[in-house]
């Protein structure tokens, strides 16, 4: 390990420490704000470190810098102003929107890696890439629909259609098949597109039939999914802070989802069953 690499690894470890303690502090109203700020400090540390790594490596193309900085600037401005202005009652759909873009970012990183190393990916690494793209795709479209339902842009009623069950089965098979062929025939780019399309449709079909009242639980579940997608993105670029933070959110988000469903006297399976056309369809439009 070079000196910089060693320092970077240690800084990422401190960053991961901040996230874990941050989540820990957020369990009580008294310390929650401190916890969130601690986790923000961890985030800043990780960003400064990766920036230093890029600057010292010095192999980033000028256009890549421009793309990166433009994306960051627009993203920070948009995210910050939306979060500052949103009325408190509209917070859940905004969180869902932020979750959607997080999943989208993870999926984009998976796509990038798949495209750049196409054909040269060793088997054990192609699995996380495929999972990253598919889970990221599902959370991206699923969370966008959840945002729409919570804000009333998409009908809050469960949306079902006659062949929904069949469509679900087809999409699940297409997703699995695409994942399989992405791993076995990595030089064929069409399977990447198929996986992407199938996972996006999967997200739609999963969220559309769920009623607006159950949406917060679904948002929390998709949040946990995004955590996993980010963890797999960490495998892809071999960065431990992504793996730790992603797995942390994936696990903590799952527990949180169970607790939220519990508070509503529903089970997660029961809520999602609506999502696969077997549950609360009596109120369908």
């Amino acid at each position: 390990m070079s000196t910089l690499k060693t320092i970077a690894s240690l800084v990422y470890l401190v960053s991961a420490f901040c996230y874990v303690i941050g989540v820990h502090l957020m369990r009580s109203p008294k310390t929650a704000k401190k916890g969130n700020r601690l986790s923000f400090v961890g985030m800043i540390l990780a960003v400064i470190m990766i920036l230093l790594e890029l600057l010292t490596a010095g192999k980033v193309q000028t256009v890549a810098w421009i793309a990166l900085i433009a994306g960051l600037a627009i993203g920070i401005f948009y995210g910050f102003t939306r979060a500052k202005k949103v009325p408190m009652t509209d917070v859940p759909q905004l969180v869902s929107l932020f979750n959607a873009v997080g999943g989208g970012a993870a999926a984009v990183i998976g796509i990038f890696d798949y495209v750049t190393v196409s054909g040269n990916l060793q088997l054990m690494l192609s699995i996380p890439v495929v999972l990253d793209v598919i889970i990221g795709g599902i959370t991206f479209s699923g969370s966008l629909i959840a945002t729409g339902k919570l804000s009333g842009k998409v009908s809050g009623k469960p949306i079902t259609f006659p062949a929904a069950k069949l469509a679900n089965i087809v999409v699940v098979i297409a997703t699995i098949a695409a994942a399989f062929f992405m791993i076995t025939e990595p030089e064929n780019g069409w399977f990447l597109l198929l996986a992407l399309a199938a996972s996006l449709i999967f997200g739609l079909l999963m969220t559309l039939p769920i009623g607006g009242a159950d949406m917060p639980v679904v948002v929390s579940l998709l949040n946990a999914f995004t955590g996993l997608a980010v963890a797999f993105a960490g495998f892809v670029i071999d960065n431990q802070v992504l793996i730790i933070a992603g797995a942390l959110v994936g696990a903590a988000g799952t527990i949180l989802t169970l607790q939220m469903a519990d508070a509503m006297n529903r089970s997660v399976a029961n809520i999602l069953a609506g999502g696969f056309g077997t549950g609360d369809s009596q109120s369908s439009a």
């Binding site: 890549a64 993870a106 984009v108 990038f112 960065n239 949180l256």
Partner: peptide, 27 residues
Amino acid sequence: LQTPMMSGANAIHGVVVVGAFAIAAEA
């Protein structure tokens, strides 16, 4: 605290931004 916790966890997986930096090096 459920909604703030969900939102806080959501912010943490924003660490994917590190990945965005990392891929910039290969573009």
